[in-house]
Simulated assay, not measured.
Amino acid sequence: MKKLLLAASFSLGVSAVAQEAKTDAPVADTVKAWSIQGQNTLMLNQAAFSNWVGGGANNVGWLAGVNYNMTYEKGKDLWENIVILGYGQNNTKGTGTRKTQDVINLSTNYGREFAQHWYLSGGASLQTQFAAGYEDGNNPDARKISNFMAPGYVNVGVGVTYRPNDNFTMTLRPANARITFVSDKDLQYAGSYGLKKDGDTSLFQFGFLGTAMYKVKLMENINLTNTGSVFSNYLDHPDRLVLAYGAVLNMKINKYISSNITLDLMYDHNQIQKTQLKQTLGVGFGYNFDNGRKRSDKKDNQSWMK
């Protein structure tokens, strides 16, 4: 009997030690470094008239776009990638089809933290459009003023990035190369987008680039995203700043229906010596997703990267 009790006590002791060892074992880090946030939209509008004394023309239009933010954040490393694409058209009876939205905006920026929220960074970006634009409201019979990669702006530079949270990012690049491409032969003449002589396909500039993004939650399901940039060319007329500001007001009605209001302001001496303005309003299908959380915020596991 004593032997049986001794054996049982020994077994319980071994089990307890094993359980304690298992409890003290380091917990595997399951938090992923990648996160992705995105918005897909499809806006539709339509109007029809029949014997309407107030007048009007039948029309139908659409606007589609995507806005993705893919971020890698681990330790001192921060790598943010942004993809913004948008295109829209409107067809009006008696006028034909006109472009209402056309944007390609791609950017990447990598940083290595050297102080809290501050990163030594380097990155590149591309801004252009999908299709040709015309002087008279995108009338194809009018004079062409733009096209795909005409202009196309490529920025490559190094500097510092300040990012205290997910809602604010500022990047300052005192060393930034800005190349303007004009791939359309009809637009390759002196003065077009700053080209020096007829037949030139690009313009090289080197200077300072500053960019910033600030997101504000105005109320439940209503968010405002502000972006801004400034560029100064060290090589020629540094006082002629290239300024840009954009605002997107997103009002989410439910999971699949949303409304967007956008505002874009821009001044570029090489394009036109006037302030440019573009505004759009649309209601339609929108789907937002947030697959994954950032390690720095100690949020949930990013199962989509498993």
Score class of each variant (00 low, 15 high):
residue 88 G to Q: 00
residue 43 M to F: 11
residue 288 N to Y: 12
residue 196 K to Y: 09
residue 253 I to C: 03
residue 93 K to Y: 10
residue 294 K to E: 14
residue 117 H to E: 13
residue 52 W to F: 14
residue 84 I to C: 02
residue 88 G to W: 01
residue 146 S to W: 03
residue 284 G to H: 03
residue 155 N to R: 12
residue 294 K to F: 04
residue 129 Q to R: 08
residue 278 K to M: 12
residue 107 S to C: 04
residue 64 A to L: 00
residue 73 E to P: 02
residue 82 I to W: 06
residue 9 S to Y: 01
residue 60 V to E: 08
residue 38 G to Y: 14
residue 178 R to G: 08
residue 73 E to H: 09
residue 75 G to D: 13
residue 290 D to W: 05
residue 11 S to N: 09
residue 304 W to R: 01
residue 110 Y to Q: 04
residue 101 Q to M: 07
residue 217 K to Q: 07
residue 107 S to I: 05
residue 202 S to L: 00
residue 121 S to Q: 01
residue 209 L to R: 13
residue 298 K to M: 09
residue 232 S to C: 02
residue 103 V to L: 12
residue 283 V to E: 01
residue 40 N to P: 10
residue 209 L to I: 05
residue 210 G to R: 00
residue 117 H to A: 12
residue 302 Q to C: 07
residue 214 Y to T: 04
residue 90 N to K: 14
residue 79 W to H: 05
residue 168 F to S: 06
residue 229 S to C: 01
residue 252 K to I: 09
residue 289 F to M: 11
residue 282 G to T: 13
residue 141 D to A: 15
residue 161 T to D: 03
residue 287 Y to D: 11
residue 60 V to M: 11
residue 246 G to D: 07
residue 304 W to S: 06
residue 186 D to Q: 14
residue 72 Y to F: 14
residue 5 L to E: 11
residue 305 M to I: 14
residue 239 D to C: 00
residue 243 L to K: 02
residue 112 R to W: 14
residue 101 Q to R: 08
residue 58 N to Q: 10
residue 281 L to Q: 12
residue 279 Q to H: 09
residue 225 T to M: 07
residue 249 L to T: 01
residue 187 L to N: 13
residue 164 P to S: 10
residue 287 Y to K: 15
residue 57 A to I: 07
residue 160 V to N: 00
residue 59 N to C: 07
residue 40 N to Q: 14
residue 212 A to R: 01
residue 89 Q to D: 06
residue 54 G to M: 08
residue 34 W to Q: 04
residue 120 L to M: 05
residue 252 K to T: 14
residue 249 L to S: 01
residue 240 R to A: 11
residue 64 A to V: 08
residue 140 P to G: 12
residue 239 D to M: 03
residue 240 R to K: 15
residue 175 A to C: 06
residue 40 N to D: 11
residue 17 V to R: 11
residue 276 Q to L: 11
residue 32 K to L: 05
residue 130 F to W: 03
residue 136 D to L: 07
residue 36 I to A: 13
residue 102 D to C: 04
residue 47 A to H: 05
residue 200 D to C: 04
residue 233 N to I: 03
residue 113 E to M: 15
residue 41 T to Y: 02
residue 80 E to G: 02
residue 45 N to M: 05
residue 267 Y to W: 06
residue 159 G to F: 01
residue 105 N to T: 05
residue 74 K to L: 11
residue 87 Y to E: 02
residue 62 W to I: 03
residue 182 V to E: 10
